[in-house]
Nucleic acid binder design. Structure first.
Lengths: 225, 225
DNA sequence: AAGCGATGTCATCGTACGATGACATCGCCG
DNA sequence: CGGCGATGTCATCGTACGATGACATCGCTT
């Protein structure tokens, strides 16, 4: 609404030759920009309304782009959804797993604790500022086709589980996988339920305070008393 | 499939006058039976595929009933969905709240502990046998219209929260509402994520063992060390 | 047995959706 | 500046859906 379909063409001349030749950000026809806007709009709408509840026309309208471009750039609704899942940060930064096993046990343990604290801090930040990610929501979705479920599992498996697994006490102990997944349920569940808004006190709670409870729950399930 | 549309008409004569006049279970045309089958099929499909992903034709087919009857008995898709939510047990038995405040503090506390244990046992049983309920799933759904969200909140508020609130330690203490809702996230989240199947170890875990972890998590968040 | 309300069946309407291909317009390169 | 690929726009197709009303059939009541 507002934003009358046609974008401003004013700054057309502003495209001096100065900018990097590879990203001419101010082009009237810019496939990259169109793709990005489609992806961003789709991420929002899929998160808000789910897959079946989201129409490509609605995505295109929010992106300020023609719906036919979805077919061109993502092959169709499925492809767009897969792209959204692939680009979903789940929780902001990428977990760096490049080095493992190169350090002493206690150092590894301390580092795991630090990373757990970092993960929790990022979750709290997300609870304050943003809605639950599509991947996070999908962990609690029973109406997923196989492809979406696989993409979701892969995303959680690479962005969340390793960190929680490493923080389990003892690391690699019995049930460490189950413990990590239970911790995932707690962490993501709080955020998703908060976004859903069905639990009023949870939706209204101060994220910092939620973080305290989440921390206690994590310590319990991960075996760190 | 199988079940070629037409149901057996064989036992038609079996309707002896012996049965209760009010429930002639063996009638060829039985609105009550049709309503129930529609409701059951709808509960399954809404849980499996969500609201937007479920078509009335699919519901009618699973129920072995004509789709037009949905309009007759439930007014439409919305009405059918509301009926499903209203009939959703969430967790099997009804919480009996008829008497409160009539007992000494310690007795009330003991009773709350008993009921918490009962709730957990029922949840474990549900994890073993059944899929997550629609209401349970809705707690983690961000794509709900207001009516569905309200119905879900009401259902959780009357069937789950009171019990957890009473079990919080100290009862009625600070954050007791938030604590109860966090406990709800844990209890329902485990079941829903299990049904979703995105977390493999959780999906494969023994429900009894899950119950142990859930108990520890509940004790943590409810303040009963 | 007759009549009438309850129940089930069928055909169809209007709409929204995803997909597709033809066409228009742009911007870069020679 | 002229052509050509890239990008955007538009019209339209086929399908599935929810809803509705007309009609057929049943079964209870009298």
């Amino acid at each position: 609404m507002g934003q009358s379909g046609r974008v401003d063409r004013v700054e057309r001349a502003a495209r001096g030759g100065a900018e990097a030749t590879v990203t001419p950000t101010t082009r009237r026809r810019d496939a990259r920009r169109s793709r990005e806007r489609l992806l961003a709009a789709a991420a929002e709408l899929f998160a808000e309304r789910g897959y079946a509840g989201t129409s490509l026309r609605a995505v295109a309208e929010r992106a300020g782009v023609d719906a036919a471009l979805v077919a061109r750039y993502y092959g169709g609704k499925d492809g767009l959804y897969r792209a959204v899942l692939a680009a979903d940060p789940v929780v902001s930064p990428v977990v760096d797993e490049s080095d493992e096993g190169h350090e002493a046990d206690d150092e590894a343990r301390r580092r795991a604790a630090d990373e757990l604290a970092g993960l929790l801090a990022r979750m709290v930040d997300r609870w304050e500022n943003g809605p639950a990610t599509t991947v996070g929501q999908n962990v609690f979705r029973c109406d997923l086709d196989d492809a979406a479920a696989a993409a979701t599992a892969e995303r959680v498996g690479e962005r969340v589980l390793p960190l929680l697994r490493a923080a389990a006490e003892p690391p690699g102990g019995p049930d460490s996988e189950l413990r990590a997944e239970l911790a995932t349920v707690v962490l993501l569940g709080i955020g998703v339920a908060r976004t859903a808004g069905t639990l009023p006190a949870l939706a209204a709670a101060d994220p910092e305070e939620l973080g305290v409870y989440a921390r206690a729950l994590l310590d319990t399930v991960l075996g760190r008393r």
